[in-house]
Simulated scan of single mutants.
Amino acid sequence: MKRIHVVAAVIRGADGRILIARRADTQHQGGLWEFPGGKVEEGESVAAALARELREELGIEVTASRPLIKVGHDYPDKQVLLDVWEVSGFSGEPHGAEGQPLAWVSPRELAQYDFPEANQPIVAAARLPDQYLITPEGLEVPQMLRGIQKAVAGGIRLVQLRAPDMYDPKYRDVAVDAAGLCAGKAQLMLKGPLEWLGDFPSAGWHLTAAQLRKYASKGRPFPKERWLAASCHTAEELALAEQMGVDFVTLSPVQATRTHPDAVPLGWDQAAGLIAGFRHPVFLLGGVGPEDRERAWQAGAQGVAGIRAFWPEG
C-alpha cells in the first residue's frame, strides 16, 4: 500500500492562537478537527503543496513557514505521512473557502478538541515550545530557584527540574517551589520515582532511559492530560518511548559535551535518521544551544534542549 503524502499546517496568529478546521461529516474521519492542508500532488514540492492548499482552503498566502514534525500513521484503510509545517506569517484573512468551520484556539485549548488519532503528535508539537531548559547540577536551592524564575521571565516555557545530586526529600521541596514559579507561565517536568506522581498533579514527568526499560511494557502511567517525556539515546529506546505512549523525548548526545565526555555523539545525520523513524516531538540535546534551533528543525526536531546553554547568567 502506497503511503499518501499529506502536507498540514499549524497556522499561528500574532496572538499565539492556532487555526484549526472541522472535517465535513462525509469525509474520512468526518466531524473531527484537523490542521488545514491536503495531499501533495505527484511532482509537487511540499512548500508548493502547502501554499496551494492554504490558498484553496483558507484564501491566504503563506509568507513565513518552517518544518515542524513528520508523522507516519497507518489506518486500517490507508497509510499516510503527515508532513507538518508551522506557518507564522501569511497575508489575507483566513476563511473556510470550502464551507468548513474554523476556530482560533490557544495551544492549551487544543487538547480539548477531538482530532484524528494520527494528529495527536501534531497537537503535542503545536503546544510545545522549541526550547527545553534542564536545570544544572550542583546549585544551591536559592540559586536554582532564582535561575528558574529568571528563565521563565525570559520566555522559557518548558523546564526540567534535574538535580541528581539532591537527596529525595530536598528535591521534593524544591519541586513544590519550582511548580509555584512555573504556574501559568511554563510547564514543569519532574524526574523521580513514579510513586511521586500523585503528589505533583500540575507537573509533567520526564523518565530516565532506565525507567523506560523498566516500565514501557506497562504503558502510560497517567492520563493524556499530563505531559510524559523520556530521555532516549538509541533507536531501541525510542521504540520503548513509543510503546509507553510518551508525548515527547530528548535525544542525546548530538555532539560531545563536558557533562558526559564518555558518551559517543550521534552527530546531526544519525540524529535526523532516528527522528525520521519516530512519530513524536523530539528535542535534540548535547552540545547544542539556542543558535542550533534552525538546524534542529531541518533535522526534523521540535527544537533544542540544554543545560548551561539555556541557563540564565548571574
Rank of each mutant, 00 (worst) to 15 (best):
V105R: 08
G31T: 06
G245A: 13
A301N: 07
A125I: 09
E56V: 14
R172M: 14
D77Q: 14
I69Y: 03
K218E: 15
E57M: 12
R12L: 02
I122W: 06
H206I: 11
A111F: 11
D199G: 05
A296M: 09
F35Q: 05
V249E: 05
H28T: 07
M1K: 08
I134K: 00
R146T: 09
G303V: 13
R157M: 04
E41N: 05
G59K: 06
G314N: 14
R3E: 13
T259Q: 09
G267S: 11
H95F: 12
D292N: 13
L238I: 11
R295K: 15
T26F: 10
Q79S: 14
F310D: 07
Y171C: 02
A49S: 11
V282G: 06
E34H: 02
Y113N: 12
G96C: 10
C232R: 05
G92T: 08
P94Y: 03
I20H: 05
L32E: 14
Q298S: 11
Q211N: 07
I122R: 02
C182N: 00
L188G: 04
V288E: 04
Q131R: 12
T250Y: 04
E225R: 15
L19V: 03
F222W: 13
P265E: 07
D130S: 13
P169T: 10
A14Y: 02
G306Y: 03
W196N: 01
E34V: 13
A125E: 09
